[in-house]
């Protein structure tokens, strides 16, 4: 696939190191494949995702990792990042890989679960936890969280703070920007993908 990265070279590694999402610099190259990341990775325990292996693909210059379905099982808990003995960050490298896949248009279906974030920007003018996560979060975190969430504005008023969301004019402005820059079109295009099953 991608001609940008010559197969078998360090092109992909250097691309990741120079990406703003990756803050660990040349530590990426210092990986000794000890596997501590995979040992502690919740994604690895419940799927075929393997952060150590992913880094090895990058260092080998094997670009097929960009198309791998497995990399989408990382949800950025940052455990690998915090324990890596050489100061590498597999999860940040993972973010760059995903971005490459998204930019190449081969990952639209993986973006569907995140549509709620896009809607939140369009409808409320700011990022927030998408509604489709509420049910599970209510079960996981508990009723207190649900109570708190539903009465957030009351709490804020008591604390002398303004409402959480921007006012309607601001939302309108943000929405206009998002429409003009093509963000809305992109969201709608992803929504059209029918064959995505959770």
């Amino acid at each position: 696939m991608d001609e940008k990265f010559e197969h078998g070279s360090l092109d992909l590694a250097h691309f990741i190191m120079n990406d703003i999402k990756f803050a660990q610099g040349e530590n990426l190259l210092k990986c000794v494949q000890c596997g501590m990341c995979t040992s502690a990775c919740p994604g690895a325990q419940h799927s075929d995702y393997n952060p150590r292996d992913m880094i090895e693909y990058i260092l080998e210059g094997d670009n097929s990792i960009i198309e791998s379905e497995d990399i989408w099982n990382c949800f950025y808990c940052y455990t690998c990042h915090s324990i890596c003995p050489v100061g590498n960050s597999p999860c940040q490298a993972n973010q760059v890989l995903k971005q490459i896949a998204i930019d190449e248009g081969i990952a639209d279906e993986h973006l569907r679960p995140f549509l709620g974030f896009g809607d939140s920007f369009l409808n409320h003018g700011m990022g927030g936890i998408p509604q489709n996560f509420f049910k599970e979060m209510r079960e996981d975190i508990g009723e207190d969280w649900w109570e708190f969430k539903n009465h957030l504005d009351d709490v804020r008023t008591q604390l002398g703070l303004g409402p959480v969301y921007p006012d309607d004019d601001s939302i309108e402005e943000i929405s206009t920007i998002l429409v003009k820059c093509g963000f809305k079109d992109r969201v709608e295009k992803i929504r059209e993908i029918k064959d995505y099953e959770k």
């Binding site: 494949q33 596997g35 040992s39 325990q45 393997n50």
Partner: peptide
């Protein structure tokens, strides 16, 4: 002890 056997690629 949770470890990846990196030779066998096995958690």
């Amino acid at each position: 002890v949770r470890v990846e056997d990196t030779v066998k690629r096995e958690f």
